[in-house]
Design a protein around this nucleic acid. Structure first.
Lengths: 348, 348
DNA sequence: TACGATTGGGAGAGCGCTCTTACCGATGTC
DNA sequence: GACATCGGTAAGAGCGCTCTCCCAATCGTA
């Protein structure tokens, strides 16, 4: 009652004084670690409400060694040799917007905050690894877009849990969430062939990226079942320009192609433009299937048929997996594989 | 030399022991606060190198009340009534990728880390404000996409520096970085008219958003100088669908339109599609100018003529402004206005 | 040579929190 | 009814750092 209503934030001490108990008791009520008598608990809760107390993160993490932060590491997007890796290019893929949005919302439920880190240069990579090793974040959500990335391993060695989007290229002790990419490829093949496609072709992402390879493999696998022994393909960046260029090459190699399965929606969009340039009508002359169901899929004309990845769900699962392991580091590494879904629109 | 090489991270104490000085001296060397004899400094530096010491952020921020974190708050994108605000929609605008990328890279130079927060619901907004008031971040970079947002004011009241992208709709004690949007509109008008456009039209973003309004005003201002007393316009969301819908309405009101200035590139892309649907050729029948020079500008065919915002630079400036004010909170609020630049491609 | 002025390092008190330890009073047991 | 037991609280020691004294050594000057 002898309150100092200065503008400084209230501390545990203040709450304890108001409630007439010790700091320790207040701490117990807040953290629910040990039993506290119901009456005392009420008193303390009331005092907390009265003072508007909120724990100080720095003080807490100084002793608990927990920060309530998760690093969201975006590793350089597939950069060709001599080309500079640029994670903001990854950010410019609307698909990532869905993923990051999923992270933020899911982490929020656990009262964990995302710290955004780019691993676009060797120094930045070191910095990210160090950041983790020093315990500035409790764990990492890693979105890596190139194939043979040593980063997952390095981050894992930092001793904090790591959850990846998509299977690591090399076996690494981390958890990951992935899509059954090969099944997605099969879905696309099945659909294209059912639509009467006689000469399917592939416009794939970088073959060093497991997801790109799996999608193509799945497609070829199913195509083979329908008698297509050879499916021509061209690989390029997971970008609009990449899709356009690859389509050009595909068309050069195989002008009779009448169905294209693209590595992602951005590439599909590029394919659409290349086809138009060549006077091919979509879907009449050539049918096109994308991948991701990112916002661009509804920004093309014709609207893009695509293989949907439940990005938000996958991101939320990553966050859950991470929090789980942060709370109990002894847990085994887990993988969660989602099923793709065909979204049929107007391009097929 | 009698080191305990346990895996625990070295502390100030350890460095002090190795260097044979007190904690205080090591701290002085690290923070450069007071003069330290050159010889001692060297010894300490060597000890730091030997131990691989890096300061513990939590401990440091407990006493300095500084966290080395900057909140990046993405406020709900213009949501119509009954519609849910969704910042990840903002994230799906590739333009934001450039901005966020600029933040990350610029903050990194100051050794400040970005914490991503969405202010998409009233609760999330409260949480963001609280987060700041509790000092969990030293300041805020705010990207708000709706017009009359109370958030800037609330964040400012939290007592930490705030720097906004784009001028706040209401006067608020914050710094901001903006583009001379009206000049951008003028540039577009000048260009369209120089290209022989006789009947210009506007496809604008939400008029509650200052940027959208300024762009339109600038365009009309310059059009008026060329005798166009009335420029028809349709407003909608800053999205592909919004651009498409607005263009439909514009075409309905004014079928003879032969030049369109769109609120941003996404809307321009929508306009392109609407025009194609109506059999109008671009640029022959109708010329189209976008805004932003976001990655989508090179993902349309024809390539989009657009008004460029130097997003990365603007973002970097925001970060610099913020860090400046964090270091010296007494500094006056500053605004930095960038000049737009016309990027001529194939759509005009 | 003696004195104050100056320079640079050390000691120690916290910052706000958690957690172990010790204690105290109320129960259960024979 | 005495003792062991147990639930529940208080006390206090840090976590790693910064920063304010305070003191010792050095310098300059009369």
């Amino acid at each position: 009652m002898t309150e100092d209503l200065r503008q400084s934030v209230p501390t545990l001490e203040d709450v304890a004084r108001v409630a007439g108990v010790s700091r320790a008791t207040v701490s117990r009520v807040i953290n629910g670690k040990r039993k506290v008598a119901a009456t005392v608990q009420e008193t303390v809760l009331a005092a907390i409400a009265e003072t508007g107390y909120v724990p100080n993160r720095a003080a807490r993490s100084l002793v608990t060694r927990r920060t309530g932060m998760a690093a969201v590491v975006v590793s350089g997007s597939a950069a060709g040799p001599g080309e500079e890796a640029d994670p903001s290019r990854a950010l410019s893929d609307p698909f990532f917007g869905r993923v990051v949005g999923g992270f933020v919302r899911a982490l929020r439920r656990h009262d964990v905050h995302p710290v955004l880190l780019f691993a676009d240069t060797p120094e930045a990579e070191d910095q990210a690894v160090n950041y983790l090793r020093l315990g500035n974040a409790d764990g990492t959500l890693l979105v890596s877009t190139h194939g043979d990335d040593p980063l997952p391993g390095r981050l894992a060695e930092a001793g904090r849990p790591v959850v990846m989007f998509s299977r690591p290229a090399r076996p690494v002790p981390v958890s990951y969430v992935d899509l059954a990419n090969a099944d997605g490829g099969r879905l696309a093949a099945e659909h294209l062939i059912a639509r009467g496609c006689r000469s399917p072709g592939l416009v794939t992402g970088p073959l060093g990226v497991p997801a790109a390879r799996d999608r193509a493999d799945g497609f070829r696998d199913r195509a083979a079942r329908h008698g297509h022994a050879y499916v021509p393909g061209a690989a390029d960046d997971f970008t609009f320009a990449g899709g356009e260029a690859a389509t050009e090459r595909l068309l050069a190699e195989c002008p009779e192609v009448d169905g294209i399965f693209a590595g992602n929606d951005l590439m599909a969009q590029g394919a659409l433009h290349a086809l138009r340039t060549h006077g091919r009508r979509v879907p009449d002359d050539v049918a096109v299937v994308g991948f991701d169901d990112s916002p661009v899929a509804t920004q093309t004309r014709p609207l893009l048929t695509t293989v949907r990845q439940p990005a938000e769900e996958m991101a939320a699962t990553m966050a859950d997996l991470l929090v789980e392991r942060i709370e109990d580091p002894g847990l085994p590494h887990r993988s969660v594989i989602f099923d793709p879904e065909l979204v049929i629109r107007d391009s097929t």
